[in-house]
Write a protein that binds this DNA or RNA. Structure first.
Length: 570
RNA sequence: UGGGCCGUCGCCAAGCGGUAAGGCCCCGGAUUUUGAUUCCGGUAUACCCAGGUUCGAAUCCUGGCGGCCCAGCCA
């Protein structure tokens, strides 16, 4: 599944893996894992991690990558998310084979190891309230204070812990804590919590447990139990590595395996948010239609928008893996999609903003079938049939009564233009609504010698797209724009939040857009290039009567650049 | 502020003491029945700053500056 880039990117993590392999470390094995918590849908940031972990496994003969649900917080997790995550990883193109795990698979073992820690004097049951624990922890600059429970004997701790498990205490009454150092400059080492009492039904283990282990305790042990060699995570866990190592060191006699945790920077995309907390807010506020709204940076949203797995994998490969802030421009992602779709998407014509054109010298009842290639550079993609008729629609943007400048090469009153895959027409007259003065129709004439042939003695430089008025179908077209108006949505005034920067125009719905008939056979999820406009993906909400197309991304538009420079010279 | 991490072109990113890869963007130009694609060509005397070591520093040393993360019984 590696992308065939000219220069294969070898990052610092792959370098470490290669060195370990060369040194014969880990018995020549490399085992990674992708450990999502099922508390939301996967997004583009997860794709980076998935491509890294599964990518490394694929690149090495002994490589294996596990998919493990980090499901230690039943209050926030749901089965629905598990199914969505499984589907998204598969869709992205990766296969965990039989290596599907849940941290909850290890709850018995985890409990047993917690008792070992207690017996070794490395953990104790603390009776402080949540608020007290916070106060005792100290601050960034001041050391914390020892809990009164800190020096209880292992016997007392063991008894209390067993009673915690047995359900003798209410939620929050006690926690199990590691006994490390309340004065550590690293706050994560100030006797962190290992287990809490929480009477919540777990999506995998039901009501078997009323105590649940915390991430720091669970993660490293799960890694060790699965024989993970390289435990890759994002930078915010750098401060947790001493704890990861501390736990595995204390349990060395039990586990006999100590993976290496390596951190890399998480992905940040501009003009969007990549944080499950914020994404779930957008879903709950109904700012978007759901996790798979095409404006969402979730994998399901991108899929519905028209993104291909290849384009996302290529994107992940291009941004690389480092520890420096990975603030990537959204246009970079868009470029990856264009690049992929340029090769793959069949071409078609659709009119977003229709203007009727009547070709006066075209026979009233005549309809010509024109065969056009589905892809101009790739004959293997086949052909489709276009229908030429007396009345057609063109895009309003492709006509101007008077050319604004000499560079304008679309249709102008009194001038000629080529209809894509069809004839050259000349605009003879502009019909306006007598009241509004709005242009309602163009009267044109066509040159019947110009089908698949250039006209004699003159050059027609412009080509515009069109759809037959009588034979064309109608569709709903949804135009998407960035979800936020600021590159960094978190840049807000005092007291505000990221939703203040929502883009009110992130979705525009166009109805009754003329589309060429061949498009009606499209299947949901199929992507086309609407020539001269952009790439569009058929939405699953489409019906027979109302096909819906989502704009994945526009075509690059150098004319927009020129025309927006307005009166500026050159 | 204590601790951890980061700072090379607008963005991503190579580089690991020998005189700044590549990709995206951008700017020219060619071809084009998509102002798309494709194809040519151009773009950091410069590596956060200041000193120092060295024949030679983005790479080593010292000191600054800037940014990100941590005070959940979340992950």
């Amino acid at each position: 599944m590696t992308e065939n880039e000219p220069s294969k990117p070898i990052d610092f993590i792959r370098t470490i893996v290669a060195q370990d392999l060369a040194a014969g470390k880990w018995d020549g094995k490399v085992t990674t894992r992708f450990p999502p918590e099922p508390n939301g849908y996967l997004h583009i940031g997860h794709a980076k991690s998935i491509c890294l972990n599964f990518g490394i496994a694929l690149e090495n003969p002994t490589g294996v990558c596990h998919l493990r649900f980090d499901d230690t917080n039943p209050e926030k997790e749901e089965e629905e998310y598990i199914q969505a995550i499984l589907e998204d990883v598969k869709w992205l193109g990766f296969d965990w084979k039989e290596k599907l795990f849940y941290a909850s698979n290890y709850f018995d073992k985890l409990y047993e190891l917690a008792e070992v820690l207690i017996q070794q004097g490395d953990a104790y049951v603390c009776g402080l309230s949540a608020e007290e624990v916070r106060t005792y922890r100290g601050t960034l600059t001041e050391p914390g204070k020892n809990s009164p429970s800190r020096d209880q004997s292992p016997q007392v701790n063991l008894d209390l812990f067993r009673r915690m498990r047995a359900g003798e205490f209410p939620d929050g009454r006690y926690i199990l804590r590691a006994k490390i150092d309340m004065a550590s400059p690293n706050i994560n080492m100030r006797d962190p919590a290992l287990y809490r009492i929480r009477r919540a039904t777990h999506h995998q283990t039901g009501d078997k447990w009323c105590i649940y282990p915390i991430y720091d305790f669970t993660h490293g042990i799960s890694d060790a139990l699965e024989g993970i060699t390289h435990s890759l995570c994002t930078l915010e866990f750098e401060d947790h590595r001493p704890l990861y190592d501390w736990i595995l060191d204390r349990l060395e006699s039990q586990l006999k395996h100590h993976p290496q945790q390596i951190e890399f920077s998480r992905l940040a995309l501009d003009y969007t948010v990549v944080s499950k907390r914020k994404l779930i807010t957008l879903v709950n506020n109904q700012t978007v239609s759901g996790w798979d709204d095409p404006r969402m940076p979730t994998l399901s949203g991108l899929r519905r928008r028209g993104y291909t797995p290849e384009s996302i994998r290529h994107f992940c490969s291009r941004i690389g893996i480092t520890k420096s802030p990975n603030n990537v421009e959204i246009s970079f992602l868009e470029g990856c999609l264009r690049e992929d779709l340029e090769k793959k998407a069949k071409r078609a014509m659709a009119i977003l903003n229709p203007l009727k054109v009547v070709i006066e010298n075209y026979p009233e009842d005549q309809v010509e079938e024109i065969t056009a290639p589905n892809h101009p550079q790739d004959p293997d993609q086949g052909e489709r049939t276009l229908f030429m008729s007396r009345e057609i629609y063109i895009d309003r943007e492709d006509f101007m009564e008077v050319a604004p400048n000499k560079k304008f090469k679309r249709l102008v009153l009194g001038q000629e233009v080529r209809l894509r895959n069809s004839y050259v027409i000349r605009c003879e007259e502009v019909i306006r609504d007598p009241h509004s003065a709005e242009i309602t129709q163009l009267r044109c004439r066509y040159d019947e010698t110009t089908l698949n042939a250039n006209p004699e003695g003159r050059k027609v430089k412009g080509v515009i797209h069109w759809v037959s008025a009588s034979k064309g179908h109608k569709a709903e077209i949804r135009l998407y724009d960035r979800l936020f108006t600021k590159a960094n949505p978190d840049e807000v005034d005092e007291g505000g939040d990221f939703t203040d920067n929502l883009n009110p125009d992130s979705l525009k719905v166009l109805k009754g857009c003329p589309i060429e008939p061949s498009l009606s056979q499209a299947k949901p999820g199929e992507t086309f290039q609407f020539e001269r406009v952009g790439y569009f993906c058929k939405d699953p909400d489409s019906t027979e009567e109302n096909p819906i197309f989502n704009r994945a991304v526009t075509l690059r538009d150098s004319w927009a650049k020129i025309s927006s420079q307005g009166g500026r010279r050159r």
